[in-house]
Design a protein around this nucleic acid. Structure first.
Lengths: 213, 213
DNA sequence: TAAAATTTTGCAATGACTCCAAAATTTCAG
DNA sequence: CTGAAATTTTGGAGTCATTGCAAAATTTTA
């Protein structure tokens, strides 16, 4: 019994609403577009919008919300003999070197950034996402290292690793917002990642090495 | 010409409104109290409330908003031969050791934390405060070190130093919220601060040493 | 003490978000 | 295929934060 018509339709509707909303936001900014307008443009009722998205912010950050587990996934997938932080640095360098849209290195990302930049409520939402990334990563680190319950290290390490991630992202966002070309930003951020690695202690760089437990 | 009556009255009104609001929030939680209720309880109009506070959140976090420059101040006040990070660690240890209410080590802080814990919009506001702390600190570091305009180091260093600060604060908040005694939490956080210092690289611990420019 | 400056207030409006019960639609048993 | 059951959509009313505006009250100043 394949997936029912109903499920498919729901997914489509949800996607369509988010797309329509994103289009409007990119055009006119987050605050200048009302939920009522989005509903009308998507040809559904306001209540249907809220049926799919808990808040207006989620209409724009729907995609970004999926990357909550990315850091934890990178850590879980680290190589044998590789630490958590080094794995994240490696994956990050990979994405940046490949000028991947997954890290915002794409034509048109500046418009996306501008919408966020001008809407405090969207920035708030992003911080809350950061928090989720941190918590997910901390949980992964606890599991991977088998740390005791009261051990503060996974929390601290998650903080350091998130900082790596965030520093890179903020830099990409800032430069793209400033109108730079993805390829340029890529080169620049690779240098930044070296700077970042330089600032990390051996303790951080060697935490949770796969195979040493 | 001493400060006019008007100025004094304004300050009193503002303080009074904030106090009344804080009392209500502590009693019943942030979301369960409406701005209209606060206005009535403070015997002013709703518009007057908004005259003094840009948003509902500011009624509760008025005091906390003042600590935006604390990190920057600590760094500017570092001893000769002392780095930015070490100054912050020293000041932080001082506050924690003294079981200072300035860092939340006081009876009743758990009620304060509970209100924040249960109100997403208050947590958002705190993140935004963190951001301000970061920016203020970065500016201070730039000024103190005379870093070039394109130099990414002050940004990265500010990130690391804020992380120290935040890790300590989150720990204090968590433990106080759990109902622990201030003195207990103080001892515990002192240990945590040692753990934190252990995780910092020499580069970070020796950035912006006063006297080496 | 009257005019000027500032603050407080009432009123109306916008917009996000929630609740509820009545359609409309889809699934499924028979 | 058909009607009942389950699910989704919708309209409408309501709450609350927040803003804008102009009148009224208060304070300062000349």
């Amino acid at each position: 019994m394949a997936e029912g018509l109903r499920e498919r339709k729901k997914r489509q509707t949800r996607q369509y609403i988010s797309d329509v909303a994103t289009g409007l936001f990119l055009e006119r900014g987050f605050d200048a577009v009302t939920v009522a307008e989005i509903a009308e443009a998507a040809d559904v009722s306001v209540n249907t919008v809220y049926n799919y998205f808990p808040a207006k912010e989620d209409l724009f950050l729907d995609r970004s919300a999926g990357m909550t587990e990315r850091l934890a996934r990178w850590v879980r997938g680290r190589d044998v003999g590789e630490s958590a932080a080094r794995a994240v640095l490696r994956e990050l360098r990979g994405e940046v070197e490949a000028v991947s849209p997954r890290v915002g290195l794409m034509e048109g990302y500046d418009r996306f950034m501008r919408v966020i930049h001008e809407a405090p409520s969207l920035r708030s939402r992003l911080w809350s996402l950061q928090q989720e990334i941190h918590d997910t990563l901390e949980a992964a680190l606890r599991e991977e290292t088998g740390a005791a319950d009261g051990d503060p290290l996974p929390d601290l390490m998650a903080g350091q690793i998130c900082w790596i991630h965030q520093a890179a992202f903020v830099a990409i966002g800032r430069e793209m917002l400033a109108g730079r070309k993805p390829a340029e930003v890529s080169r620049e951020v690779l240098v930044l990642l070296d700077d970042i690695e330089d600032l990390l202690s051996e303790k951080v760089l060697n935490y949770a090495v796969r195979g040493s437990f």
